[in-house]
Simulated assay, not measured.
Amino acid sequence: MTILIAGGGLSGLSLAAHLVARPEPLGPIIVVDDGRRPLATAGWASWSVEPGLLDEAVSRTFDRFHVHAAGRSRVVGLGRYKYRFVRGDDLAAAVGKAAARRGDVVFRRGRITDIRQAGQGAEAIVDGEVSRADWIFDSVHRPHPARVDGWLIFRGWHVRTADPAFDSAVPTFFDFRTAQNRGASFVYVLPRGPREALVEYTSFAPPRSRGVAYPQEQRTALREYLTTVLGVREYAVTREESASLPLSASAVDRRRGSILAIGTKAGLVKASTGYAFQRIQADSAAIARSLACRGHPFDLPTPKARHLLFDATLLDVVARDPAQLERVFAALFDRSSAEPVLRFLDEESSLPQEGKLFARLPPSLYSAVRRRPR
């Protein structure tokens, strides 16, 4: 069995790690990436209860975070959960180390211009040449989900301040004390120390926005947050990052013969949060298990209808009334522990547990969820 992974980013490297972690040999495995997006500048945060396969790549761990919504600030514990941050170069190093132990993984630099079915297998055109495989996992070539229910648009500054400005032990999960000009917006802060942090301005935008960002407005919001909300008098922006992610609350048709979409292309970004790291890990583990036990990668869990319903309802309501996002977040996180909310966002909660969460939601959203057919 020959496996080709198109793309060496988060989803491609995660799948490679889970494939080589299986006791059964599943290779050879070829990971093809064009190198246009260096992993050294990438990073991902996520929450989980149990340690994960790639915990070796975790550089920071938190057990609580700060939230500010509806005029109230509080620090919320995470219960059994931990909030973990993984740097791109640490992820690459961990996967490379695991691959070296197996010896059947090849990391190849190249640009993929096409991926197509070919007989019983598939083939990718890499730098003009044909590379054949039994299975191809595509994180780069296939377009995003056809249906877009909203956009997550963010711009982040990596800042260094002259004086201490951040709590090293507590990230800010969301802070709504910022401009709401073009959609529901908040600021996220991931500290690296008392004088260093990633400060990110994030907006949920409706489908009609087409993911168009407004850089100057975003930068103005970041400046105002640093100087007015945090009271920072002197700072330097060491790096800027930005993206517009399509959000879909519908199941994605991922399969084309022997080709399977993975990562963002597979709709694994959670529509109501914009998080994907743990979903990609679970999906990668399921693909590896299916290949080992079934001989194909398609024995995967299906999305739960009621969670897709919540995601779709939230995006719909926020598109019509952006202020609803702050009300929803304020209601969900008005508790001493975020564990029930994180369990729900992980789609691992029971119906009774979800009923208790929904009882706290603003009546307009709660009514919309009840009116929609399941």
Results as ranks from 00 to 15, higher is better:
residue 16 A to P: 07
residue 16 A to Y: 03
residue 16 A to K: 00
residue 16 A to N: 02
residue 17 A to E: 04
residue 17 A to G: 03
residue 18 H to S: 04
residue 20 V to D: 06
residue 21 A to W: 03
residue 22 R to Q: 15
residue 22 R to F: 02
residue 23 P to G: 03
residue 24 E to G: 04
residue 25 P to M: 02
residue 25 P to C: 00
residue 25 P to F: 00
residue 26 L to D: 01
residue 26 L to N: 03
residue 27 G to I: 04
residue 27 G to C: 01
residue 27 G to H: 00
residue 28 P to F: 01
residue 28 P to K: 02
residue 29 I to V: 15
residue 29 I to D: 02
residue 31 V to F: 00
residue 31 V to I: 02
residue 32 V to G: 05
residue 33 D to C: 07
residue 33 D to W: 07
residue 33 D to P: 05
residue 35 G to W: 10
residue 35 G to P: 10
residue 35 G to Y: 10
residue 36 R to H: 11
residue 36 R to M: 06
residue 36 R to G: 08
residue 37 R to M: 09
residue 37 R to I: 08
residue 37 R to F: 13
residue 38 P to M: 03
residue 39 L to G: 05
residue 39 L to N: 08
residue 40 A to D: 15
residue 41 T to S: 14
residue 41 T to W: 12
residue 41 T to V: 15
residue 42 A to Q: 15
residue 42 A to W: 11
residue 42 A to D: 14
residue 44 W to S: 07
residue 44 W to G: 06
residue 44 W to H: 14
residue 45 A to Q: 14
residue 46 S to Q: 11
residue 46 S to G: 12
residue 46 S to W: 14
residue 46 S to T: 12
residue 47 W to N: 06
residue 47 W to V: 10
residue 47 W to R: 07
residue 48 S to M: 11
residue 48 S to Q: 09
residue 48 S to W: 09
residue 49 V to E: 12
residue 49 V to Y: 07
residue 49 V to C: 11
residue 49 V to H: 11
residue 49 V to N: 05
residue 50 E to H: 13
residue 51 P to K: 02
residue 52 G to V: 07
residue 52 G to E: 14
residue 52 G to F: 06
residue 53 L to T: 06
residue 53 L to Y: 11
residue 54 L to V: 08
residue 54 L to K: 03
residue 55 D to P: 01
residue 56 E to Q: 08
residue 56 E to K: 00
residue 57 A to F: 03
residue 58 V to E: 07
residue 58 V to W: 06
residue 59 S to C: 12
residue 60 R to Y: 11
residue 60 R to P: 09
residue 61 T to Y: 08
residue 61 T to A: 13
residue 61 T to V: 14
residue 61 T to I: 15
residue 62 F to N: 08
residue 62 F to Y: 15
residue 62 F to T: 09
residue 62 F to D: 08
residue 64 R to L: 06
residue 64 R to A: 15
residue 64 R to H: 13
residue 65 F to W: 15
residue 65 F to I: 04
residue 66 H to L: 11
residue 67 V to H: 03
residue 67 V to E: 01
residue 67 V to R: 02
residue 68 H to N: 09
residue 68 H to K: 09
residue 68 H to F: 12
